[in-house]
């Protein structure tokens, strides 16, 4: 029996984006962050007698970082399909515009979950401990889903609005850099930071993702994580609505 349309699109999106080059970016890059930053900066911390403390802090952060990468995969898929003619080819086939969009969003979520799972396995290999509570794991991966939806939506919005290759890549790199480093992925939010920088941390959805995943990983979830996830949910809904609107109004090709 043939798969339903949506699953066929998801299969296609995953297959097209799992070539060796893409996998290096999706899994290799965060894996290297985890290993090099974890041990590199961990050696600084070891001066205080906490050799694995930074690695344990970084591991859930790198899991969270996957949602950002998953989002870029989604945005790039839409942009490339418009640029290289596959969107109009697919839409002249048995698919609706909405199925196509949903196919990208769900593929992004699967990339987020898959990447986070790989990072979790790498972290366990390095640290040897595991969050045993099913509730903690559910919160961690539920947060990954929410984060992937938000950043998938954000990058889809970009993919729907931008036509130029240079502009698309420049904005994507800028977003990746700012969102990644102005979050609690790599370091905790400190009061010693300038106010503007602290404000950037607090409005950054990746901070909410990293805090909740870290809370689940370390078994230290608080009410604050719950509030942040609520905000993240609202933001994801809003950004997905905006992305859908922009996508439905966009040209299906750059002809």
């Amino acid at each position: 029996m043939a798969l339903p349309n949506l699953f066929r699109l998801i299969y296609r999106n995953i297959r097209v984006n799992t070539d060796p080059g893409s996998l290096v970016i999706l899994v290799g890059l965060p894996g290297m962050y985890l290993i090099f930053f974890g041990f590199g900066f961990g050696s600084l911390a070891s001066a205080d007698g906490q050799s694995h403390a930074y690695l344990a802090f970084l591991a859930p952060g790198i899991m969270s970082f996957q949602v950002l990468l998953a989002g870029t995969v989604g945005g790039s898929m839409l942009w490339a399909d418009r640029r290289y003619g596959m969107l109009s080819q697919l839409l002249s086939g048995p698919f609706t515009r909405f199925q196509y969009l949903l196919g990208i969003i769900l593929a992004s979520v699967l990339f987020g979950l898959g990447g986070a799972a790989v990072m979790l396995v790498v972290a366990l290999g390095l640290l040897g401990s595991i969050p045993t509570l099913p509730f903690s794991l559910a919160v961690m991966f539920g947060t990954i889903v929410l984060g992937s939806l938000f950043f998938g939506g954000l990058m889809l919005l970009l993919g729907a609005l931008v036509k130029s290759n240079t502009t698309y890549n420049s904005i994507q790199i800028l977003v990746l850099f700012v969102v990644n480093f102005a979050s609690t992925v790599f370091y905790p939010l400190s009061n010693s930071l300038p106010f503007v920088l602290r404000a950037m941390f607090w409005v950054n959805p990746l901070t909410y993702v990293a805090n909740a995943v870290r809370g689940g990983y370390t078994g230290s979830l608080t009410a604050m994580d719950g509030y942040e996830l609520l905000i993240l949910t609202v933001e994801a809904v809003v950004i997905l609505a905006l992305a859908t609107r922009a996508y439905l109004r966009s040209d299906i090709s750059f002809e």
């Binding site: 296609r12 297959r15 097209v16 070539d19 490339a80 290289y84 003619g85 596959m86 109009s88 080819q89 839409l91 002249s92 086939g93 048995p94 698919f95 609706t96 090709s253 002809e255």
Partner: peptide, 20 residues
């Protein structure tokens, strides 16, 4: 639209490929 597209094939004027 979708019922029609299920029964037609289209070769577009421009290039259209997956990265594969």
């Amino acid at each position: 639209g979708q019922r029609i597209r299920n029964r037609v094939g289209v070769v577009q004027q421009g290039e259209s490929f997956d990265f594969s």
